[in-house]
């Protein structure tokens, strides 16, 4: 066996080790990058602080600031009270959970987010999301805009 054959036989394990180490590095880096990406998306989602009511006409232009728990309904005790609508007393809820606002409701009929029916138990909200519940429509906003008739 020549010296080259000996060295080459040993080096095949070095090449294999290099490739496997490279693959492990790629997987680890990809996971860490994915986590950064998720974090960035969460920052963008977390940055919604207000909702602006579009429908019905009676409440059009009304701004509501989001707190940790925000009940939406026709009851006066709700954080977002919309009395003269088709909503139940406590119809839906927007909750701050794991750094993002999530929409949840038990009455999913006639309920849409961005034109899609609500399927998940909790749907994360982002800036610009349009939510329809019965006859009520509102938009999630990062900041309170200038438009609007009066303050919440």
């Amino acid at each position: 066996m020549s010296a080259y054959e000996v060295v080459s036989s040993i080096m095949r394990y070095v090449f294999l080790g290099t490739l496997l180490y490279f693959i492990v590095l790629l997987i680890v880096r990809s996971i860490s990058e994915w986590r950064y990406l998720r974090m960035a998306q969460r920052i963008l989602q977390l940055s919604i602080h207000w909702i602006l009511v579009i429908e019905p006409e009676k409440y059009r232009g009304k701004w509501f600031p989001l707190k940790e728990y925000n009940d939406i309904g026709s009851g006066s005790e709700c954080e977002i009270p919309l009395a003269q609508t088709e909503l139940k007393a406590r119809h839906a809820r927007i909750v701050l959970k794991n750094g993002e606002y999530r929409f949840s409701t038990k009455k999913r009929r006639y309920c849409e987010i961005n034109g899609q029916p609500v399927i998940r138990r909790e749907t994360p909200l982002a800036d610009g999301d349009i939510i329809w519940i019965q006859d009520v429509c509102f938009i999630c906003h990062r900041t309170r805009g200038k438009e609007g008739l009066d303050d919440a």
């Binding site: 080096m11 070095v14 090449f15 290099t18 490739l19 180490y21 490279f22 590095l25 790629l26 880096r29 860490s32 990058e33 950064y36 990406l37 960035a40």
Partner: peptide, 19 residues
């Protein structure tokens, strides 16, 4: 986001070529 500490991965590629 796009290049989370890629230097070590680059080093591995260079090492492979060199070897």
């Amino acid at each position: 986001l796009r290049h989370a500490r890629c230097a070590s991965a680059l080093g591995v590629v260079l090492l492979f070529i060199l070897a």
